Amino acid sequence: MNSPKIIKSSTEKTIVVPLLVVATILAGMLSPMQSAVNGQVGKQLGDGNASAVVSFGSGLVVMAIIILARQSTRRQFASIPKKIVSHRIPWWNWIAGCCGAMVVFSEGASASILGVATFQTTLISGMVISGLMCDRLGIGVPVKQPFNFPRILGAVLAIVATVLVVLPSWQAPKVIALAILPFLAGLLAGWQPAGNSAVAQETGSMLVSITWNFIVGFGILGAALLVRILMGQLTFNLPSAWWMYLGGPLGLLSIALMALLVRGLGLLLLGLASTAGQLIGSVLIDWLIPQLGNEVYFVTILGALVALIGAGIAMIPSANKHVAVDELENHQV
């Protein structure tokens, strides 16, 4: 006979989990909102590099305020130079911010032309393939995961999704070339969480890791922009509208919400719900804001659905493996 406590716990879980899934879907919509903002900044400034500097700069300001407000995080951040010199973690973990720089650069350079739905679908497709490769090589995971049918199928569906969303622009080589940017950014972004996680463990703070991530990205993009300005290739002007500075804060809010929601959902549900939110939000933005000038085609929606299915199929084996590892660690403790 089930005790009232067990029944109550089961009932609460039945009610809470769907609510958390809905919350994660809504949080996932922040990513296409960020892409839309950065895309419009890139359109106004006429340069993806300049747009990325604005986005990283606004995010870095927010993180600097958060870090400087606490003595513990100031101390942890100040320890970074010594930790880099000590080589306790591989050097590439410290430059994971390059991946975020590529993603934000591609947003400014291509999101306004491709449309948010096409941009997000190609980005997610690249991330699915990158995630499978990182799992196979053991990057950021405790156990290497071999390729199997579901994982290969997920990667194939990711490629199919990318082809579908660019089909309406197949006769426009410039658009196809731009679609390569978010796909490559997605491929690079697969190992960024592993690098950020390693830095967080080394410094003892995820906030410090995120701040360092923004510093690396801003430093690389800012240096490139400065060189181009000095060479006379472009002139840089700050965006005129206040909302154009929300790209960085939107990305930070998304990271914070995901960190909170993962505790109640786990990696699998969080990944699926956030991916669904990204794709649903992308289509809605292109559809409900015609001022952006992006048309939503049937194949765009179909490509988004295929990307979601591919991501789901690719995640399932990983989730099972992570569960097994977590259970093993719990028993050892």
Score class of each variant (00 low, 15 high):
62 V>A: 05
63 M>W: 01
64 A>D: 02
64 A>Q: 06
64 A>V: 08
65 I>Y: 11
67 I>D: 08
69 A>G: 08
69 A>S: 11
70 R>H: 07
70 R>T: 13
73 T>Y: 08
73 T>I: 02
74 R>D: 00
74 R>M: 02
75 R>K: 04
76 Q>T: 05
79 S>K: 14
79 S>V: 10
79 S>H: 13
80 I>Q: 04
80 I>M: 08
81 P>S: 10
82 K>C: 06
84 I>V: 10
86 S>V: 06
88 R>C: 03
90 P>T: 09
93 N>H: 14
94 W>V: 15
96 A>P: 04
96 A>G: 08
98 C>A: 15
98 C>H: 07
100 G>I: 07
100 G>V: 04
101 A>D: 06
102 M>E: 00
102 M>D: 00
102 M>G: 10
103 V>A: 10
103 V>G: 12
105 F>Q: 14
105 F>C: 12
106 S>Y: 09
108 G>V: 12
108 G>D: 11
109 A>W: 02
110 S>F: 09
111 A>F: 13
112 S>A: 14
112 S>I: 03
113 I>E: 14
114 L>R: 04
115 G>F: 07
116 V>W: 00
119 F>Q: 00
119 F>G: 02
120 Q>N: 10
121 T>Q: 03
121 T>C: 03
122 T>R: 02
122 T>D: 00
123 L>G: 11
126 G>F: 02
130 S>H: 01
131 G>C: 04
132 L>D: 00
133 M>L: 15
136 R>D: 02
137 L>M: 11
138 G>E: 12
138 G>M: 12
139 I>T: 01
139 I>N: 06
141 V>F: 11
142 P>R: 08
142 P>S: 07
143 V>Q: 09
143 V>F: 07
143 V>A: 13
144 K>P: 03
145 Q>H: 15
145 Q>V: 15
146 P>C: 05
146 P>R: 09
147 F>Q: 11
152 I>M: 09
152 I>V: 14
152 I>G: 07
153 L>E: 09
153 L>D: 10
156 V>K: 03
157 L>Q: 10
157 L>S: 06
157 L>W: 05
158 A>D: 09
159 I>P: 06
161 A>Y: 11
161 A>E: 01
162 T>Q: 04
163 V>F: 04
164 L>Y: 05
168 P>A: 12
171 Q>I: 14
171 Q>K: 14
174 K>Q: 15
174 K>Y: 12
175 V>S: 02
175 V>M: 09
176 I>V: 15
177 A>V: 13
177 A>R: 12
177 A>C: 13
179 A>M: 05
181 L>W: 02
183 F>M: 08
183 F>Y: 03
184 L>S: 00
184 L>V: 15
185 A>Q: 01
186 G>S: 01
187 L>I: 09
189 A>C: 14
190 G>P: 09
190 G>Y: 01
191 W>T: 13
191 W>A: 13
193 P>R: 01
194 A>W: 10
194 A>L: 13
195 G>Q: 06
197 S>C: 12
